[in-house]
Design a binder for these strands. Structure first.
Length: 734
DNA sequence: ATTAGTGGTGTTTTT
DNA sequence: CACCACTAAT
């Protein structure tokens, strides 16, 4: 064990680590040793004997960050980290709710809905209430519910301003009732339920307040109102909150996060105790200067400027591609070059704004035979065969779970069709009982009736058989008895799915071996009786599956190029970073165009992207790009202009202000042919960059009519898409 | 009851 | 393009 934890820390870091027992805000810039400070403080608190490992709670946003923290603590201290309250907000709340399910008003076997599950419950609910999906799109309701829960608001507390809001709010209440009937909770509910539990139950609150002497929060800028409230409750008995965050890296406002929590925290908790960590240990100066210059364009900041002791390093490299395909080819070429300079592929990242952009890159990499790994997209526990297997397991644990039942009652096919289900749902709705109870009690004739009772018997038998088994055995038996295995064996391309199902057994085995969620919180105020202790491990595993959707893709370990969204890259660093698709409408995204607040969030996102690079940074954009099945003409992102030109080396076509080369877009011949539809008698063409006296720079994306009727559609940087009559509009070529 | 095919629609980021 | 909800055909 290292004898002196503080060795190698700079003054500010050391000050943060050794703060006395009081709340403080650590404003920690990118690459400033944030995680190190956080984990070292934990180790320091324990090593100096100030507290035991059980007296602290450390909370993060991602499972990855939580794991990282535990690993580092283990490396610094000879203690068993199992049982420590270190985890994500959702994970810790789940843990508390499992321990105090009755006080929280939940069934012991409550299941967790992921985003998909929630969406399907909502659709089901709207249908059963006879609400037209045209009038209330399920997505609206989902946003409404989640948004309000993240603000800590129940349906009874929401302020509504119009009829539609009132309608949504009524449905919010219905939604919660339905969840209660089924014994399921969504992600936000985990937090809200836990918060309400602590707020309402004084005994419990005092218990945890006394227990958690120190509370440490990572990525504090990403907390929402509800999380803030929860932290405030836990710290209410004199606990010290050590909040680490960077307002410039707040990129989850769309999920209800508010960096304003930082300012508020400073006022309410820290009493002005703020330590800024501004020395960056990651990047060369040119990269940092670029990031600093960019982020200065934001108005709402707490104020902080990164510096480094490192040299300038290389300039940033900017490449202007004709098409997305050419952009990918360029990246491929550069990666190959880096590789022959013996840079590890795993130390190179390809970043993009949205997941859809990975396809073109993957295509190029695949053809070139370069190993790569994509983060994002479908995760292990989200695959359909896995969701099916989990649904059976959920029914074993809690047969009242309508969502699970609907998912698998006729999969594999048992001759239970829409008609039968309708009858059952009708009956369940009328009698306010679960579908399972309806299935058990509603007399159904014919083949369907036989199918239903066979299904019911199957689940009951399975449950009984599971009682004597270990977790991995349960999973294996379920896959077998459910008929999933047999089904996929006959399917044409079911081999992968079978493999994934086997992988599920493996996942259960390692979860089992690691002791699952380890120590359950010790019950407070008398033990609570357990429904079926033998299924406890199963419930923990199901929660694990919902909370930690699993690796995005297998194949870790191998040296492979890293492809991910900028969001996914937060917290990571690489020798070389490529940021592609730097076009207006993509990055910054179209949806942020009109809202200054979300534009600032886009800029922070760009800031995060820039600061991922240690040594080399590539920026690129394409004049045309295939998006949603059609060619889109874009113009260079405004963010490129916010990076000082002297830090950037243009790799091609050194044009000055607006790096567009009219006409060249066609030259590669890779953009979809035939979109050249401009009127033949005009100098205007698709892809032509133009300047409008009022709207500024833009690019022609389509055209129609000819002569005096000729109109063109222009994508303007500031105004978006507009149709203009060529006869009147004062357009000039750029 | 199940499947294949069609047409309409909407698309950011994620615990 | 990809996902869906719905329809027509087996």
């Amino acid at each position: 064990m290292p004898s002196n934890l503080l060795e190698g820390l700079n003054e500010r870091q050391r000050a943060a680590v050794t703060l006395p027992h009081e709340s403080a805000l650590i404003l920690a810039g990118a690459g400033s040793g944030k995680t190190r400070v956080l984990t070292t403080r934990i180790a320091w608190l324990i090593q100096t004997g100030q507290i035991g490992p059980q007296s602290l709670l450390a909370v993060t946003f991602t499972n990855k960050a939580a794991r990282e923290m535990l690993t580092r603590i283990s490396a610094m201290l000879p203690i068993n980290t199992r049982g420590m309250w270190v985890g994500t907000f959702h994970g810790l709340c789940n843990r508390m709710l499992r321990a105090h399910w009755r006080d929280a008003g939940l069934p012991q076997t409550f299941q967790i809905l992921d985003t998909q599950d929630q969406a399907s419950l909502i659709k089901r609910l709207l249908k059963s209430l006879g609400v037209d999906e045209e009038k209330v799109p399920p997505r609206d309701l989902q946003y409404f519910v989640n948004g309000n829960k993240e603000q800590g608001l129940r349906a009874g507390q929401v302020e509504v301003f119009d009829d539609y809001g009132r309608k949504l709010n009524e449905l919010y209440a219905e939604y919660d009732r339905q969840c209660n009937r089924e014994g399921v909770v969504d992600f936000a509910e985990l937090l809200l339920r836990c918060d309400e539990l602590l707020g309402r139950n004084e005994l419990l609150r005092r218990h945890y307040q006394q227990r958690f002497v120190h509370i440490l929060v990572d990525e504090f800028q990403d907390t929402n109102r509800l999380q803030y409230r929860w932290l405030a409750l836990l710290a209410g008995g004199g606990g010290a909150v050590f909040a680490v965050g960077d307002d410039d890296q707040s990129i989850y406002a769309f999920r209800g996060a508010s960096a304003q929590n930082m300012a508020e925290f400073e006022r309410d908790f820290a009493g002005g105790r703020v330590i800024k960590l501004e020395q960056n240990y990651r990047s060369h100066a040119n990269i940092l200067d670029a990031a600093n210059a960019l982020i200065r364009h934001n108005q709402r900041r707490l104020g902080k400027e990164l510096w480094t002791a490192e040299g300038k390093g290389e300039p940033l490299r900017l490449y202007e591609a004709a098409t997305d395909i050419e952009e990918a080819a360029f990246i491929l070429e550069e990666v190959t070059g880096l590789r022959s300079d013996s840079v590890q592929l795993s130390d190179i990242a390809l970043l993009y704004r949205s997941n859809a952009q990975s396809r073109v890159l993957e295509h190029a990499l695949f053809n070139a035979g370069l190993p790569y790994r994509v983060y994002g997209g479908l995760r292990f526990f989200e695959r359909q065969e896995i969701k099916h297997a989990l649904a059976y397991l959920r029914l074993v644990s809690n047969p009242e779970d309508d969502g699970a039942l609907l998912r698998v009652i006729n999969f594999p096919a048992r001759g239970i069709g829409a008609r039968t289900l309708e009858q059952m749902q009708e009956s369940a709705h009328m009698r306010r009982i679960s579908l399972w109870q309806a299935a058990c009690t509603t007399p159904l004739g014919g083949k369907a009736g036989a199918g239903v009772s066979a299904f019911v018997r199957g689940i009951e038998d399975l449950r009984r058989a599971c009682l004597g088994l270990s977790l991995p055995e349960m999973v294996e038996l379920t896959i077998e008895r459910s008929g999933l295995k047999a089904y996929y064996e006959t399917e044409r391309d079911g081999a992968d799915r079978i493999e994934n199902l086997n992988e599920l057994v493996t996942a259960a085995a390692s979860f089992h071996a690691e002791g699952g969620f380890a120590a359950h919180a010790e019950p407070v105020g008398g033990a609570q009786t357990e429904a079926d202790p033998r299924l406890r491990a199963l419930e923990d595993f199901l929660a694990h599956a919902a909370l930690e959707a699993g690796e995005h893709q297998a194949g870790a370990g191998a040296d492979a190029l890293q492809l991910m969204t900028v969001h996914a890259a937060k917290g990571l660093e690489f020798h070389a970073v490529f940021i592609s698709g730097l076009e207006e409408g993509l990055f910054p995204h179209d949806n942020s165009r009109n809202d200054p607040e979300s534009l600032e969030e886009e800029r922070r996102l760009m800031y995060v992207a820039l600061t991922r690079a240690r040594r080399r940074l590539y920026l690129s954009f394409a004049q045309s790009r295939m998006l949603h099945g059609q060619t889109r003409w874009g113009i260079a992102s405004r963010f490129l202009e916010e990076v000082p030109a002297q830090l950037v080396r243009r790799l091609n076509r050194g044009r000055a202000a607006h790096p567009f080369a009219p006409g060249t877009a066609r030259s590669m011949g890779t953009a979809s042919a035939g979109s050249y539809r401009a009127p033949p008698d005009s100098p205007w063409r698709i892809g032509q960059n133009v300047i409008h006296p009022k709207f500024g720079p833009g690019v022609i994306v389509s055209a129609e009519g000819r002569g005096a009727d000729a109109r063109v559609q222009v994508n303007f940087r500031s105004e978006g898409l507009k149709w203009l009559a060529l006869e009147y509009a004062k357009l000039t070529p750029a």
